[in-house]
């Protein structure tokens, strides 16, 4: 059962196509890794899922619901973190989460819960403006995780974290489907990182979906094409390079 499905999803900005005819299938209760180089269209796709930007063509279904008619119902189910952390600099971490909590209509205890999940409890009283980059990132994650929503959309959640933090957050994401029974869509530039977290992966390049499936399937595909298969990072790079070369030929 797919909780998120897109059909021919396309986003064009003034003649430039950022996302081009993408068909994603994200199974319920799994971690889905969304992979691609800078400018591949990962954030744009995620923004469409959140109603931050409208698809130019195609559409998508989230848990049986569609934009714009089910906007509020979709957003109630989705915790999200897109690109840079977003927060009120004049409020503490705790107060920031409280604003989000009140809008979603969660109990007071959910703030403590979210702070604890991302390891921000000891800095809860500090102003978000005075947080370090990693703390801001954690605050953004806490704000996505608050209330333990059934769907999580996380855009490069480990950006700016220290190695310990990266490990913590990865383990947290890995454990979410089992612990809270939720589905996670997580983006990254790094295949090795995705490898550690995801059940399924989708590889995007220049707005097109090059591959979708499990890691095992990716390995098999690589072998069949004669790409280096023992090292998935190289597989990824080879895949992207091949696609870029084809694009240049067409041009």
């Amino acid at each position: 059962m797919n909780i998120i499905e897109t059909s021919n999803l396309t986003k064009t900005y003034a003649g430039f196509t950022a996302v081009s005819g993408v068909n994603l299938h994200i199974p319920r209760g799994t971690v889905y890794g969304f992979l691609g180089p800078n400018g591949a269209g990962k954030s744009t796709t995620m923004k469409m899922f959140l109603g931050l930007t409208k698809p130019t063509k195609g559409d998508f279904v989230i848990d049986g619901k569609k934009f714009p008619q089910d906007r509020i119902r979709i957003l109630k189910e989705v915790g999200s973190f897109i690109e840079a952390p977003a927060f009120y600099g004049n409020l503490t971490g705790e107060e920031n989460l409280d604003i989000v909590r009140r809008i979603i209509g969660l109990p007071k205890s959910s703030v403590d819960d979210a702070l604890e999940l991302v390891g921000l409890t000891q800095w809860r009283k500090r102003l978000a403006r005075k947080y370090s980059l990693g703390m801001k990132q954690r605050l953004g994650l806490a704000s996505a995780l608050i209330g333990r929503p059934p769907i999580l959309i996380l855009d490069e959640p480990t950006n700016g974290l220290d190695p310990v933090g990266i490990h913590e957050i990865r383990s947290l994401i890995r454990s979410l489907p089992e612990k809270f029974n939720c589905t996670v869509l997580v983006s990254s530039h790094l295949l090795p990182e995705i490898e550690l977290m995801a059940d399924n992966i989708g590889i995007l390049n220049h707005g097109r979906l090059l591959f979708e499936g499990t890691l095992e399937e990716l390995r098999r595909r690589a072998q069949a094409k004669g790409f280096p298969a023992e090292n998935l990072e190289e597989t990824f790079l080879a895949l992207i390079e091949e696609d870029n070369m084809q694009r240049n030929h067409i041009r």
């Binding site: 109603g51 840079a84 977003a86 927060f87 809008i103 979603i104």
Partner: peptide
């Protein structure tokens, strides 16, 4: 300004409001 300075509004618009 409090909404725009640190992009708080971006998070708010992804909430059910």
């Amino acid at each position: 300004h409090t909404e725009y300075a640190d992009h708080a509004i971006q998070r708010i618009t992804t909430l059910p409001i």
